[in-house]
Design a protein around this nucleic acid. Structure first.
Lengths: 344, 344
DNA sequence: ATCAAAATCTAAAACGTTTTAAAGTTTGCA
DNA sequence: TGCAAACTTTAAAACGTTTTAGATTTTGAT
């Protein structure tokens, strides 16, 4: 196998010192033009690629940004992460940084994986997803003073930190107004019991919008189960949709839950949107494939990924006193799963 | 910020040499029991985590296995990769190795990203997915003699290499026999034009099974478009399903295409499975959500991931002369999207 | 021709680890 | 008590890079 070439090899091939070679490649000013060219030419010729270990050791920088994903079941990641990772990767690679995705398999605690990643010096910064209401990871990173950007908010951070999030509260308010305008009065909500802030935010937005209308005939029936308890959701949804007093419009906390409602409705012989309106959140690919298409919210995750990457690189570079935060709006994607409330 | 502790710090805290500390932690035999305990205690106390850069530099090993993903559009990865990555991660982390997922954003050539990853010494081995008929990545890795496992086969590798694959040819043969037994004679196939071996293998399996039946009334109509040309597929499928002489059973190269067929059928007012049978491959989550559920093949990707991880770690350890290969069978998942051929 | 200034190059240290070869210590037996 | 054997510890080199401080060479002005 062709060995990887080193600075030392280039140096001895050109009869120069290692320092000169290193500095030529780094573009220092005090290197003669002629020398720089000779070195660069030779480096290309020998297929030189800097060894990260050597570089890391001296600079303390790894050139990596880490993302810890909890893998779980066959799904690998929550559907919405796909676009986010795409955006992250795009923006990072453009700046010469790589994205390292460390995965925490089921048994493994996500915090532990994060700690190992950070403490072994593999990454210069971290992107955090799936933010919990009180997130141990955030405390850990703040304590270690490692730059990070949270995709999502905690309810009440002890210290301010950089975050980017989608205004789920506004989106759910908008969903309510859309459906209310179509005559719906009895609403269903399918949500999760996990302590995730995005869930609380969306629920709060819905509740606030309902209260703001001030119409006493408006009602909400919620069912909740743990995030990965598909069976719990299934039976909860079945309960929600059967019986004489079922809601005429159901909002899913995210598309997966909304699609489960669609499926249950179909099995119960309810027609969408004639008998039941359904709205989701995330705009996952499957939402477009559903028949009829699922009305949902597009959070713009790819952009969020791009912005998060840029923000994090800034943070690594300068470490400002007040960390940047950004709340973006999701946009409503109108498809066929909503319609006027059925006549009594 | 609490600094990361080093061997040197532990050594001076205990008044020992760095070597002794290092060897105590590594569990060498010639360290007094008492010393070992003192060291390990102190290391825990000081929160010692080995610095990868230092370790990499001397060992030449990074403790990472790389996976290069082409990110594209909002989907991040082909749906089937989810389970594969889950399996990989599980098996790797259990052995103290991490999975580094390098992403190649659209513009970036996947080969280039791979080269950079390998040449900078960040990874000890590589998992390759989406194998092309003649794959430049395989040639590159063989040339550099870096251990790798391909998830998929090339058509004719110059040198043998380790691979694991699913027998798509058998699966498609089985799909044909199932449908033939249900009375179908005119078949449709929705495939891709990309030079991917999995596509060629499945197509060949279908053709072989059709030929083996020896029934002259059996016919096949295929439509193909580039992998990411959703519009091309949409119009191809529409063409396939309209007209008096349409197939009564359509096989999608993978679930996404099969689901597109289901959607098109629904828009054309064709009922599944009464008017049209559809079978896919991959058993993605959306296949279960479809109404009716999509009959498809479960490739067992999570297992494949686990096996690939174990195989790669072996390869890194021993580098055997004849690289291992494994061809597994996909299992048919019967749902509601197939049925008897409609009566003329 | 001389010398200061400018331009160019380099020695050496540092980053944190592992490992080899050897040094130092203890033990057991004669 | 002396000494070999067994046990335990350590000094030093090596991995590949960056950077600092200084050394060397060239240039330009007198």
């Amino acid at each position: 196998m062709r060995r990887r070439s080193t600075l030392k090899e280039i140096a001895s091939a050109l009869d120069l010192s290692i320092a000169t070679v290193s500095r030529s490649l780094a573009g220092y000013e005090d290197i003669a033009e002629k020398t720089r060219e000779r070195v660069q030419q030779k480096a290309r010729e020998m297929g030189y690629v800097p060894n990260v270990a050597g570089r890391m050791l001296v600079s303390g920088r790894s050139g990596f940004v880490g993302l810890v994903l909890k893998v779980r079941g066959p799904d690998f990641v929550d559907a919405y992460l796909g676009a986010t990772v795409t955006g992250l990767s795009e923006a990072l690679v453009a700046k010469g940084t790589d994205l390292m995705i460390a995965t925490a398999p089921e048994g493994q605690d996500e915090l532990e994986v994060l700690q190992r990643l950070v403490q072994s010096g593999r990454v210069d910064g971290i992107i955090l997803t799936r933010i919990a209401e009180d997130d141990a990871r955030i405390r850990f990173l703040q304590e270690r003073n490692l730059p990070f950007v949270a995709l999502g908010r905690t309810l009440a951070p002890l210290q301010p930190h950089a975050w980017i999030d989608v205004a789920g509260e506004d989106a759910f308010g908008e969903a309510f107004q859309l459906l209310y305008g179509l005559g719906h009065r009895h609403f269903g909500l399918v949500t999760i019991t996990d302590q995730m802030t995005f869930a609380r935010n969306r629920e709060a937005g819905l509740a606030r919008a309902m209260a703001a209308i001030g119409d006493p005939s408006v009602r909400l029936t919620s069912i909740a189960a743990p995030r990965f308890d598909a069976e719990g959701h299934r039976s909860g949804i079945a309960g929600l949709l059967t019986g004489p007093d079922r809601p005429t419009a159901v909002i899913g906390l995210f598309d997966e839950l909304a699609l489960a409602v669609v499926q249950a409705a179909s099995q119960l012989g309810l027609s969408i949107p004639d008998d039941l309106s359904v709205i989701g959140f995330d705009n996952v690919p499957a939402a477009a494939y559903a028949v009829p298409g699922l009305t949902t919210f597009e959070p713009g995750n790819r952009d969020i990924g791009r912005i998060a990457a840029a923000t994090l690189l800034d943070l690594i570079e300068v470490r400002p006193k007040t960390p940047p935060t950004l709340l973006r709006n999701a946009s409503l994607v109108l498809r066929g799963s909503h319609g006027p409330a059925p006549q009594k």
